[in-house]
Structures are given as C-alpha cells and as structure tokens.
Amino acid sequence: MENREALKPCLLAFPGPLRDQLVAAVLDGRKVSTSGLLLEYETENEELPPVGERSALIDSDGRETAVLEVTEVRVLRLADVDLQHALDEGEGYASVAEWRAGHERFWHSDEMREALGDPEFTVDDETMIVAERFRVVERLGL
C-alpha cells in the first residue's frame, strides 16, 4: 500500500515466540479476536479502539505485516468470557477454562507485571477484559 497514512501499531503479546505465533494465526485466518486487560488501557492512558479503527499488525522484528480493522469491542468480566471468543483467538483452546489458564499465565508473567507496574498483579473473576474482534484488511510485505 503506497502513500498510506501511518497506522497505530497492533502489538500482540511481547516480542518473541508468542507474538510470532499470534501474528501467524492472524495472517492465516485462525485468529480473529484478542483479549487485553482494561487495566492495560488505563495504565497506558489509552482509549479503547473504536469500531472501524485500523492498525498495523507488528511482528517481533518490528515489521508491519497486515492492516487490521476493529469490528467489535466488548468490555466484560473475566468470568463472562464466552467459548466463541476463546475459539476465535485462534490459539487452539477447546474451552474457556483452557483459554483462561493460558491468559492467566501471560497476565501473571513477569513481563506483564512489570508493564503494569505491579509485581503482585493477579486476575480474578471480576477483572475487566477488553475482548476485541478484527479482520485483516490487507497483508503487507509478504
């Protein structure tokens, strides 16, 4: 795409194997949703993405790999995440319990706790989650 305006970056996880796995899942169509902590948005003083917003999906090497468009944003309690959202994350989860266990590992990681500025951070049923759906508008540099 030539002469396009700069897009906000879409950063899934932290650079490394997990980000690479997630970017690959987006590019091959398995991943059409993602989850974040509402607290992350608050900590970074960032607005929730509006439906229709476009962003550039960034790989671990900092390259733009695709243009994504937000199609839905829901804020809900961790306890209210549904099976369809878990399946649409494209990470192979067969149940909400599997999805939650995987995400708790990530959210309780040293990297995430450092990013949040809370070395003791933990989630529970009442933790607010941002469940975002998106579609690939264009693949870049492939």
Results as ranks from 00 to 15, higher is better:
Glu2Arg: 13
Glu2His: 10
Asn3Gly: 07
Glu5Ala: 15
Glu5Tyr: 04
Lys8Pro: 01
Pro9Gln: 14
Leu11Glu: 11
Leu12Met: 14
Leu12Asp: 12
Ala13Ile: 08
Phe14Tyr: 13
Pro15Gln: 12
Gly16Pro: 00
Gly16Trp: 11
Leu18Phe: 05
Leu18Lys: 11
Arg19Ile: 05
Asp20Phe: 09
Gln21His: 13
Gln21Asp: 13
Val23Trp: 09
Ala24Glu: 11
Arg30Thr: 08
Arg30Ile: 08
Lys31Val: 11
Ser35Pro: 00
Ser35Lys: 01
Ser35Thr: 15
Leu38Thr: 02
Glu42Pro: 00
Thr43Trp: 01
Glu44Met: 08
Asn45Phe: 02
Asn45His: 11
Glu46Gly: 02
Glu47Gly: 01
Pro50Tyr: 12
Pro50Ser: 15
Pro50His: 14
Gly52Glu: 01
Gly52Ile: 06
Arg54Asn: 05
Ala56His: 03
Leu57Asp: 06
Ile58Ser: 10
Asp59Val: 11
Asp61Tyr: 04
Gly62Ala: 14
Gly62Val: 12
Arg63Met: 13
Ala66Tyr: 01
Val67Pro: 00
Leu68Asp: 01
Glu69Met: 14
Thr71Tyr: 05
Thr71Val: 11
Val73Glu: 10
Val73Trp: 07
Val73Leu: 08
Arg74Gln: 13
Val75Asp: 09
Val75Cys: 12
Arg77His: 09
Arg77Lys: 15
Leu78His: 08
Asp82Arg: 07
Leu83Val: 12
Gln84Leu: 15
Gln84Pro: 00
His85Ser: 14
Glu89Pro: 00
Glu89Val: 03
Glu89Ser: 03
Gly90Val: 11
Gly92Lys: 15
Tyr93Lys: 07
Tyr93Ser: 11
Ala97Cys: 01
Trp99Arg: 03
Ala101Leu: 10
Gly102Gln: 07
His103Asp: 03
Arg105Val: 14
Phe106Ile: 15
His108Gln: 08
Asp110Ala: 15
Met112Thr: 10
Arg113His: 05
Glu114Gly: 04
Leu116Ile: 04
Leu116Ser: 04
Asp118Gly: 03
Glu120Val: 07
Thr122His: 13
Val123Met: 10
Asp124Ile: 03
Glu126Gly: 06
Thr127Arg: 08
Thr127Cys: 07
Met128Pro: 00
Met128Val: 06
Val130Pro: 00
Val136Trp: 05
Val136Arg: 05
Glu138Asp: 13
Glu138Pro: 00
Leu140Trp: 13
Leu140Lys: 12
Gly141Cys: 04
